[in-house]
Design a protein around this nucleic acid. Structure first.
Length: 340
DNA sequence: TAAGCGTGGGC
DNA sequence: TGCCCAAGCTT
């Protein structure tokens, strides 16, 4: 088992060799041997938090084209960055991204801290991201543990404790495999293995370089791991969204409060979202029932009844194309419904 | 500590 | 359709 140091060395060599042959080509990944740009590493890691590589890739390209350095990003206006993030989700990331860029630009002369501890002090940088940037950008032997690595460890060691209680154990096991040789490649190798071979469902064990050390594989049921605690049910809420247009064809938007759901983003005026919401319109108009849209958030599902009308009032009046490009998805869907 | 926080794709 | 999941962080 990998607790024996000589076998850890063999396991590490096997995975690093696999990575040399099978590493994914990703927009933020520098070529082998090339020096990584800490700004791009950090930006990609924040975008990839709970987000697929496919979804993050066009955003990464857009951000790095528009803001090539951390100082460029730090100088951007809040609304520009929030609009550029629209559709990517978890909008607190965008607020923290800007706060972090400004902290680096103003407090560190535009240079990212090169230690895990220094990185951890930055807004929006938690245990995972600090370790990932330290390893990938600065070749620090950090213990980089994301959902992929947790799954790989749970299978490799056949951990019988369900998530999330198993996290401390999974982190300890991952740490037992970290060494000073190629820390950045090691972290990315584990994540690539988890993403492409040691997948959540139907793992491709026949392609895995680690089966000879893998207790999950040897159990015959690798996909039984990681065990998971029973999940809570997701309630459904309802609400009303109003698509109000003026005589120039612009649409009425509101800036949402800085904190909480969709915080800091533009949105349509809506009722509260609850089991039995009120439906007092935000303006006087002949309201037309435009149907409804459904949207699923992490902890509740929402049905939004859409009403459309023409009028005026104190709003952020926005041309429709700009609104469609800068709204969170739930409002983009409601707006499209209201325009139909 | 556990809950709050988005979205899109796969099956 | 509904459920699962994705390079988690904050409070």
């Amino acid at each position: 088992m990998p607790a024996v140091p000589a076998q850890v060395a063999d396991l590490r060599a096997a995975l690093l060799a696999w990575y040399d042959d099978h590493r994914r080509t990703l927009a933020w990944r520098s070529d082998p041997g090339a020096a990584p740009d800490p700004y791009r590493v950090w930006l990609s890691e924040v975008m990839l938090q709970q987000t697929t590589t496919a979804h993050a890739t066009p955003y990464f390209r857009a951000f790095t084209t528009r803001w090539p350095t951390v100082s460029d990003l730090a100088a951007a206006e809040d609304g520009e960055v929030m609009a550029a993030w629209a559709g990517l989700g978890y909008y607190a990331r965008a607020r923290n991204l800007l706060a972090c860029a400004r902290a680096v630009a103003d407090g560190h002369d535009g240079v990212f801290p090169d230690t895990e501890t220094g990185l951890l002090a930055l807004p929006g940088v938690g245990a995972y991201t600090a370790a990932a940037v330290a390893a990938i950008a600065f070749e620090r032997p950090a213990n980089v543990v994301d959902g992929n690595v947790e799954r790989v460890m749970a299978r490799l060691f056949a951990v019988e404790v369900p998530l999330p209680a198993a996290k401390p154990e999974l982190w300890r096991l991952a740490g037992s495999l970290v060494a000073g040789d190629r820390p950045g490649d090691w972290a990315q190798a584990l994540m690539d293995l988890g993403a492409t071979v040691c997948r959540p469902g139907r793992p491709l064990c026949e392609r895995c370089p680690l089966t000879e050390w893998c207790a999950g594989f040897q159990s015959g049921q690798p996909d039984r791991y990681p065990l998971k605690a029973a999940k809570v049910e997701r309630p459904r809420r309802r609400g009303v969204a109003w698509v109000l247009r003026d005589d120039q064809g612009r649409v009425a938007l509101v800036r949402r409060p800085a904190k909480g759901l969709l915080g800091g983003m533009l949105g349509l005026p809506t009722s509260e979202w609850s089991a039995n919401p009120d439906h007092m319109p935000p303006a006087t108009a002949e309201w037309r029932d435009a149907g409804s849209v459904d949207h699923v958030f992490t902890h509740f599902a929402l049905t939004l009844d859409v009403r459309a009308g023409e009028g005026g009032g104190e709003f952020v009046w926005t041309v429709v194309d700009d609104a469609l490009a800068s709204l969170p998805t739930v409002f983009r869907k409601a707006l499209e419904r209201g325009l139909a």
